[in-house]
Design a protein around this nucleic acid. Structure first.
Length: 690
DNA sequence: AGCACGCCGACT
DNA sequence: GTCGGCGTGCTC
């Protein structure tokens, strides 16, 4: 007596192969069982989606091949997980198999049942160094109120808490309550960046190791080695791990006992995946919590407009924590109108004076500049040559330290030419500024500044270039904490999460750059970045009264700054949402992009036009607006031409219906004559930028 | 997406 | 004479 499991394997949506492939098996296999099945010439990992008693119709007799192996050492993936995966595939317009298999740890794909069984038998490795237990802290009335509301919540909670208001302690205690509710309960904590997982893991382990065991806390992110990821995944799947901390990919972890999901810094764009299935881990967390019957908390000092809007509509329950623990004041805004500063000044004189003053008091300054390298462009004065990348429509960035020109898009790197490659002129000059240059100039400008002990000001830099070596991020943070740095120059990464006690001045020196980039989310992102950066200052109540956020701008009249001055996120959100509504932009409209990569721009647009033409015949097309195909802002990257087409609708459901109906036509449009040269295409639902 | 098969240029 | 370029086509 045979059974006929329908199995998902890793085939992308536009492969033309259906989602479920039927195989034959001697035994009935439960849905969620991991199997190895033959596919063409190879044998691949698959997941049983359902199991039929009769051979599938429409398949020639004997066409179904036999399941090769059953990985029955692992419990099947539960219905909640399968529903999450199925929803993600459907909503983000990808193949079920592609999403399902990508959600598993990579090493699982090529493990035999024997290897897997051996792996499962291996005892969890002994606890590392003993850590000092961390005990629950007394909650402020605001925190206690938030915790009680989370415990009793039925809808998603938006925890709107100022930086320093003690959100983490609320998360910790909410986790403790969730874990205490059942012996099998699990919680999932999402953070936007890998950098933030080690310190959070430490804190959770210190809090929970004594009660739930050292290995009850695991991390899950792409920076881990494959064996580490497999071990953490298995711990979560088997229920041994009670707390899983991770980046966006962790939203797909198998968590049979899931009771609570925390999405920290929910506004952060890192939650939106930009390759493969372009999912939003924050939005999937909401869906997953509903399916699992778990609570979900989105936390932020600067909630996204989407979440804010949902809380205004009552779909999310908003909890406010406006006060800082320890009563520290939020830094005062000092706006510097660059129109009234000496021409070409990198740092306005009053800002420089303020920094010198901080250094003299033994306090620390943080200087934000959103570009790595020395200068974004190198140019020849004589003939107008610029350091363009031969493979991309972008400039290569001048890195002075190693004398290179580096393309930040494709990685193409060359030594800086001695003379202009076009005309031989020796006078080639950097244009604009990056972190290296700011560091260099600040060291020079602050040469006279003295610390209380009479020593010179110490300026350091922190960006992706100085932290890419393993352990160097930790080392740099430790140096900062130890007070070995007076002024830290860096990219956005220094604005996030880390708790710096002695910082009393934060400066954003070219904050404007992003504001007029024709991206409707630019003000929102800048506001969040500046408030977050401000949150780094004055965490220590003793210093907080004098803490300041300096912003150099050419547009001091921008309404964003009035709200920033008042630390008024609700006011800012209200104004931005009104603008969005007037312009029929998200969250008042719903968008998707069809993106195409091709050998030539004509082919990329040719495909999009063919796709657009094909769409006209669809009845679902009535409810959506299709915009013309346009090249991306950076049109070419690594010799690939890129174009996109925007689809918009005021109904999310109508947009979904359209995209689903459109999908098979895209497959056809791909072989249209004008699409010759197309490399790949992808649909991006709820894109972050258009 | 892989990975085959398949038909045309520079090398042991 | 073959190794290998990437163009089409298939995967229960």
């Amino acid at each position: 007596m045979y059974h006929w499991p329908a199995v998902v394997v890793a085939t992308p949506a536009h492969s033309g192969v259906g989602d479920l492939l039927s195989y034959r098996s001697g035994a009935a296999l439960a849905a969620g069982t991991l199997v190895r099945v033959p596919l063409g010439a190879r044998e691949v990992l698959g997941i049983v989606w359902r199991c039929d008693d009769a051979p599938p119709e429409g398949l020639a007799p004997g066409q179904a091949r036999d399941v090769a192996q059953v990985l029955d050492a692992l419990p099947p993936l539960d219905a909640g997980w399968r529903e999450l995966v199925a929803f993600a595939a459907r909503y983000y317009q990808r193949g079920l198999g592609e999403v399902a298999l990508a959600a598993l740890p990579p090493p699982l794909r090529d493990l035999t049942p024997e290897q897997l069984a051996r792996r499962l038998k291996r005892p969890a490795k002994a606890a590392a160094a003993e850590i000092a237990p961390d005990h629950e802290r007394a909650l402020s009335p605001e925190q206690a109120g938030a915790l009680a509301a989370i415990d009793g919540a039925t809808a998603p909670v938006l925890l709107f808490g100022t930086t320093g208001s003690g959100k983490t302690e609320v998360y910790l205690q909410a986790c403790a309550h969730a874990l205490a509710s059942e012996t099998t309960a699990q919680v999932l904590v999402l953070v936007p960046e890998i950098n933030l997982t080690p310190q959070l893991e430490e804190r959770f382990r210190a809090r929970f190791a004594t009660v739930h065991g050292h290995d009850a806390v695991v991390s899950l992110h792409s920076g881990m080695t494959p064996p580490q990821r497999l071990a953490a995944w298995i711990a979560a799947h088997t229920g041994r791990a009670r707390i899983v901390l991770g980046t966006r990919l962790a939203v797909f972890a198998s968590l049979p006992g899931l009771r609570l999901i925390v999405v920290d810094e929910e506004h952060d764009p890192s939650y939106k995946s930009q390759d493969g299935a372009r999912y939003s881990a924050r939005d999937l967390a909401i869906y997953r919590a509903r399916v699992a019957g778990a609570r979900v908390v989105l936390g932020s000092a600067t909630p996204s407009l989407e979440s804010w809007h949902a809380s205004e509509q009552g779909r999310y329950r908003r909890l406010d924590m406006p006060s800082r623990i320890g009563g520290g004041a939020l830094p005062r805004l000092r706006l510097v109108d660059m129109n009234h500063q000496p021409k070409g000044a990198l740092i306005a004189p009053p800002l420089l004076a303020a920094m010198a003053e901080r250094v003299a008091r033994g306090e620390q300054c943080l200087v934000l500049i959103n570009r790595r390298g020395y200068a974004p462009v190198l140019a020849c004065h004589a003939c107008g040559w610029k350091s363009g990348c031969p493979h991309c429509s972008a400039y290569r960035v001048f890195h002075k330290l190693d004398r290179t020109l580096r393309c930040h898009h494709c990685g193409f790197t060359q030594r800086v030419p001695r003379a202009c490659p076009d005309c031989g002129n020796l006078d080639i000059e950097p244009i604009g500024r990056g972190t290296e240059q700011v560091e260099e100039q600040l060291a020079r400008l602050l040469a006279e500044a003295r610390r209380p002990d009479g020593g010179p000001a110490r300026v350091a830099r922190m960006d992706a270039d100085t932290t890419k070596a393993k352990g160097s991020l930790e080392a740099q943070l430790a140096a900062l904490h130890a007070g070995e740095v007076d002024v830290l120059v860096g990219t956005q990464m220094i604005a996030k999460g880390h708790d710096f006690r002695r910082i009393t001045l934060v400066a954003a020196i070219n904050a404007d750059a992003s504001l007029f980039a024709s991206d409707h989310r630019a003000p929102e992102r800048l506001f969040a970045l500046l408030l977050q950066a401000a949150g780094r200052a004055g965490r220590d109540a003793a210093h907080s009264a004098a803490s300041e956020l300096w912003v150099q701008t050419w547009h001091p009249e921008h309404k964003l700054f009035a709200h920033l001055r008042a630390h008024d996120h609700p006011g800012f959100a209200k104004a931005e949402l009104a603008d969005r509504q007037a312009a029929a932009m998200p969250p008042f409209a719903h968008q998707a992009l069809l993106r195409a990569d091709a050998r030539t721009q004509e082919a990329a647009q040719g495909f999009l036009k063919a796709a657009s033409r094909a769409a006209q015949a669809l009845p679902q097309r009535e409810a959506v607006t299709l915009y013309p195909a346009v090249p991306l802002t950076i049109q070419r990257v690594a010799n690939v031409e890129r174009a996109q087409l925007l689809v918009e609708s005021d109904s999310r459901a109508a947009l979904q219906r359209f995209l689903t109906a459109w999908q098979p036509l895209l497959l056809q449009a791909r072989s249209a004559p004008e699409a010759r040269g197309l490399i790949r295409y992808a649909v991006d639902v709820d894109p972050l930028s258009v």
